[in-house]
């Protein structure tokens, strides 16, 4: 009998707690938007932030309450997710432009000269603090793989001192773009046929001194290729992917073969 009283008291307190919680959750709970939960379920769930919101939850909330009308911002999900989201919201689907990260540098160990021997911690961010890194070209990929570390898909590898993106694995989240201390990782259309593998904006004669693969801004690509697709921006060739037709004349003309 002695054990009965404590058991009953415990049960009584538990019952009171349960009743209080049931009543409060019934009367005071906030109705969550069904739409929001449904949208959240069909998003890719990588929480990568490519849409520009804090994460998948943030994007779902913005879509559900109408503050964002674009259904095609989820690059990892691609067209399939855009379609599902549009169905839930009852609007027409917009196509997702599939983008992949591209490291616009080909200054590998053979091409670019070394300024000093860097023996510090293997991090581009830290190496960049020491006189913009050990490579003579201050625009070059430092090759310590900070981008590879943040890549959620493991799509980036470092080959002979330069990071390389595997376009098959890349989901276009842009985390590497934000991480690179040189700011030379770019998101470009996945269908792009030719890209400029250099970010050096110095004059040709200076570029030539530091790297044998660097764009010298000679403009031969512009002269030989379709002029409207290529521009020279501060001694660096830039290809407008919307106008590029993939004829390949620019790549043939390039004397340093940095268009590929």
């Amino acid at each position: 009998m002695e054990i009965l009283i404590p058991v009953l008291i415990c049960l009584g307190i538990a019952a009171i707690c349960a009743i209080i919680l049931t009543i409060t959750s019934h009367f005071f709970s906030v109705k969550t938007d069904e739409k929001e939960a449904a949208i959240r379920d069909c998003l890719a769930g990588a929480n990568c932030g490519a849409c520009g919101y804090s994460g998948c939850d943030g994007y779902a909330k913005a879509l559900a309450d109408g503050s964002c009308t674009k259904t095609n911002l989820c690059t990892p999900g691609g067209d399939a997710v855009s379609k599902q989201v549009s169905e839930i919201l009852g609007v027409e689907a917009e196509e997702v432009e599939k983008v992949v990260a591209y490291i616009s540098c080909n200054g590998n160990c053979n091409a670019v000269k070394s300024r000093y021997e860097y023996i510090g911690y293997k991090s581009c961010r830290i190496a960049n603090m020491n006189y913009s890194g050990d490579k003579m070209c201050t625009y070059a990929c430092l090759g310590h793989g900070d981008c590879a570390k943040v890549c959620p898909q493991g799509a980036i590898s470092v080959e002979s001192g330069v990071a390389v993106v595997d376009p098959e694995k890349c989901i276009g989240c842009g985390l590497c773009v934000k991480t690179c201390p040189k700011g030379m990782v770019k998101l470009i259309n996945a269908d792009a046929k030719f890209r400029v593998a250099c970010s050096n904006r110095d004059k040709g004669i200076i570029t030539k001194k530091v790297c044998s693969n660097g764009c010298i801004g000679c403009g031969l690509c512009k002269k030989n290729g379709p002029a409207e697709a290529i521009t020279l921006d501060n001694n660096l060739a830039v290809i407008d992917q919307t106008k590029c037709e993939g004829c390949g004349k620019c790549a043939m003309a390039c004397p340093v073969k940095c268009i590929r």
């Binding site: 707690c17 209080i20 919680l21 409060t24 709970s29 906030v30």
Partner: peptide, 16 residues
């Protein structure tokens, strides 16, 4: 028991 209930209760109330 009481603290767990209390926190849940406060969470619902704050949300509302």
């Amino acid at each position: 028991l009481v603290i767990a209930t209390l926190v849940q209760f406060v969470e619902i109330m704050l949300k509302r």
